[in-house]
Design a protein around this nucleic acid. Structure first.
Lengths: 222, 222
DNA sequence: TCGTGTGAAGACGTTCACAGCT
DNA sequence: AGCTGTGAACGTCTTCACACGA
């Protein structure tokens, strides 16, 4: 069947719009125009209308979009009607910080457990999530039907742990390892490579004060 | 003048290639073919050749690319011949983890100082970088001619701190705040939004075990 | 023969511009 | 008048396919 697929980039922006809409709701607003929401999200109004077009017809010409309905529609498309349980593997510097980080909760994700090769060595100050030995990971995943994992193990163990995750049934991985992970086509991996992002910034900073040569579309916030 | 500009996405991949090349150098290799390097970097060989084409003509037909020369050429284009000093602002959970994180150093960045509104409250275990009061930030930036900053303050202070950074002369910001930062055109901002990335993964995880509907090009690692 | 370099085609994403509804 | 929805133009990125050098 022909699918009315939504482009990946649109999905990303829908998440942004969703967050903006939430702030508007708190301010007891009822409708937004494409130009207002676009400004808040840092995109072109035309692009916003195109993106929202993928959801169906929501706006009222001359008026704008109903915030509540729009927000619900986005949440449904993103598949975020229900809480998604997440596990985190690798409770080192970064992993521990991510466990203390409140941002995932705010966006509706619950990190229900963490795993580490040496859980006893983990400094659990400020961490409320239980940290187990990585040997227990597989059973935990199957028993709790966890689909999402955050991977923050050292790069040299990344592929190995990924294989375990995949075998246990994980279907999506947010990886912080600076390496290319091999996974079956059915598994989604998104990599956040901190050093690489810094390198991007560095490139666009000219040494002699001239303006940046080009705009890296996605990530730039005008 | 007509500029032979390198596309933003190519810049990003050049960083990846550079890292892969380093690993090859360690293994005492002298040349690579586009297909081998492409495989390591997780991209299409054609794309790799096109990307390297922006650097000039390096490869030898029938043989491949000389690793050393290629690596140097990329480093030059990326402007990474010399160490770039970086400061970090906001030493909370995430900020502290980033200070302990070795990945920036590995990629040739030196975090020379950190700033926080309440530096005394910061747990500096394992942190070698000095943490100063944010009041000292401005002078530090001007005196040390720092161009790059990592921003990991709470979202409600992000814009305010950004303004200070920009006024002090910072030209590139790697931000971890889930918000749109307003900066002059001369300043580059790249945002890493952790919750949004997790939301991306979540979307591509189907609830009924069918394969992912589409590939988010950039981030996916095949 | 092997593998680069590149014109040309194709896929994709963004923006314009305006018709049409309220 | 104000603002959405969308065809069409435009620009960018990716991939193909093959000529050519080693």
């Amino acid at each position: 069947m022909g699918k009315p697929l939504i482009p990946g980039k649109t999905i990303y922006r829908l998440s942004i719009y969703h967050r903006c809409l939430r702030r508007l709701t708190e301010n007891a607003m009822e409708t937004v125009s494409s130009s207002a929401l676009a400004k808040a999200a840092g995109v072109n109004p035309s692009q916003l209308r195109r993106d929202l077009g993928y959801l169906g017809t929501f706006g009222t010409r001359g008026l704008g979009y109903p915030i509540g309905e729009l927000s619900d529609a986005i949440r449904e498309v993103l598949g975020r009607e229900h809480l998604q349980p997440v596990i985190l593997v690798g409770v080192g510097n970064l992993g521990a910080a991510l466990l203390r980080y409140q941002g995932f909760q705010k966006e509706g994700f619950e990190v229900i457990a963490a795993f580490d090769a040496v859980p006893d060595a983990v400094v659990t100050r400020g961490i409320e999530v239980p940290v187990h030995d990585v040997d227990l990971m597989r059973d935990f995943i199957t028993q709790n039907e966890v689909k999402l994992a955050v991977l923050s193990v050292p790069v040299e163990h990344a592929q190995e742990v990924t294989n375990e995750l995949v075998e246990a049934g994980i279907q999506g991985i947010l990886s912080f390892s600076p390496t290319v992970l091999m996974v079956p086509e059915t598994v989604t991996v998104i990599s956040v490579d901190l050093a690489l992002e810094l390198e991007q910034v560095s490139f666009f900073v000219k040494r002699d004060g001239e303006p940046a040569p080009e705009v890296p579309e996605d990530k730039i916030v005008p």
